[in-house]
Design a protein around this nucleic acid. Structure first.
Length: 110
DNA sequence: TCGGTGACTTGGT
DNA sequence: CACCAAGCCACCG
């Protein structure tokens, strides 16, 4: 068994997120089998900025569709990236989040 | 081995 | 609707 680091696992899932879609930290944690590790997912995302290949962390938001980690991107970078994918953001919150929501435990389990 | 840390989540006031 | 508190767990030094 490969060195299954939670971080690497998280990165893989995030890279699988289709363009124009978003998911939540908890969903990823749940997909990995560690529902309680939702915080760890966010923590991993912080390091995602230095990870290679780069991880589309801008597609990962909290349960409310709120861009909690936009500040870590450095300003409005996160919002810009989302807008570039056709995702509408207002007040650091994703509109029609319910529609754009992409659940790995559902999409990847097909 | 232990403690600090956090881009979360839920529930209560 | 807004804020506070507690539970949760992997990574790092």
């Amino acid at each position: 068994m490969p060195d299954y680091n939670f971080y690497d696992n998280v990165y893989d899932v995030v890279r699988l997120i289709p363009r124009g879609r978003v998911t939540s930290y908890g969903a990823i944690a749940a997909y990995l089998g560690n529902k309680g590790s939702s915080r760890i997912v966010g923590y991993a995302m912080m390091a995602a900025g230095t990870a290679k290949p780069p991880v589309p962390a801008h597609r990962v938001v909290n349960r409310q569709g709120l861009l909690t980690g936009k500040f870590h991107f450095g300003g409005n970078t996160m919002e810009e990236l989302l807008a570039a994918e056709g995702i509408e953001v207002k007040d650091d919150k994703i509109q029609n989040f319910k529609q754009l929501y992409w659940d790995p435990s559902v999409e990847l389990s097909l």
